[in-house]
Amino acid sequence: MSFEPATADTPLVEIRGLRFLRGSRPIFDGIDMDIEAGKVTAIMGPSGTGKTTLLKLIGGQLRPDAGTIRVDGQDVHRISRKALYELRRRMGMMFQSGALLTDLTVFENVAFPLREHTDLPESMIRALVLMKLQAVGLRGANGLMPSELSGGMARRVAMARAIALDPMMIMYDEPFTGQDPISMGVLVQLIRKLNKAMGLTSIVVSHDVAETASISDYIYVISQGKVVEHGSPQNLGRSDSPWVRQFMDGLADGPVPFHFPAPTLAEDLLGPA
């Protein structure tokens, strides 16, 4: 896989004025983001704010209602289907649900992108797959079917699959959810290590504030369709914005609502007048 790392002043992913609606409900309402090449960028925000949606927009699976997303200089939603598929080959994505192919073994799942996109000999594929599985600690599970894995294991297999083609960029959707403290620690280090060793650009979506902050170079906090704060972990740690404080410290009270938008409880309980 060859790619030219974007230079420092042009970010690998550039989001401008992004607006996206689900029905008539805006999920994003004018978001600007720059994701620098070679860095680990974290996207944080309360559940249901649209982090997964944002990754799908970047991957070109959803179309924005307004605004542009450029990846490596190409407008994801304007380029041809062929060019989009070319681009996707260089992006790995680890789905929140894993999205493993249920009729293939763990080994074949990780081998899948290699078999689809390369003509490597079987011995080479085997070596590559086992290496990737070793990295996530699941080499021994290579013969299992996805239905025989726990949620945390499935996610680690998905991670091995996302790095199978040595992409230029990986999007991790909640990589730490469902991991025990040990594998969590390993994965945190792995994301950092991959980023360094392979010159990857990583986007990590996560709720695990401390772990994510410890490996990221830059953090975006989104809430209610807007970027409410962004900066390096140090700066965010010092920030006195109530949004950030509430989120970083896990406080129940603050500007970030815990509840999905709704009429007041009293109105709902009393029913329509």
Binding site: G59, Y85, F95, L101, P113
Partner: peptide, 17 residues
């Protein structure tokens, strides 16, 4: 079911149509 479990989206993201 492949659609419901995101296997089809997963393939798309792996640049497999």
């Amino acid at each position: 079911l492949m659609k419901a479990t995101e296997q089809l989206s997963g393939m798309e993201m792996m640049a497999v149509n």
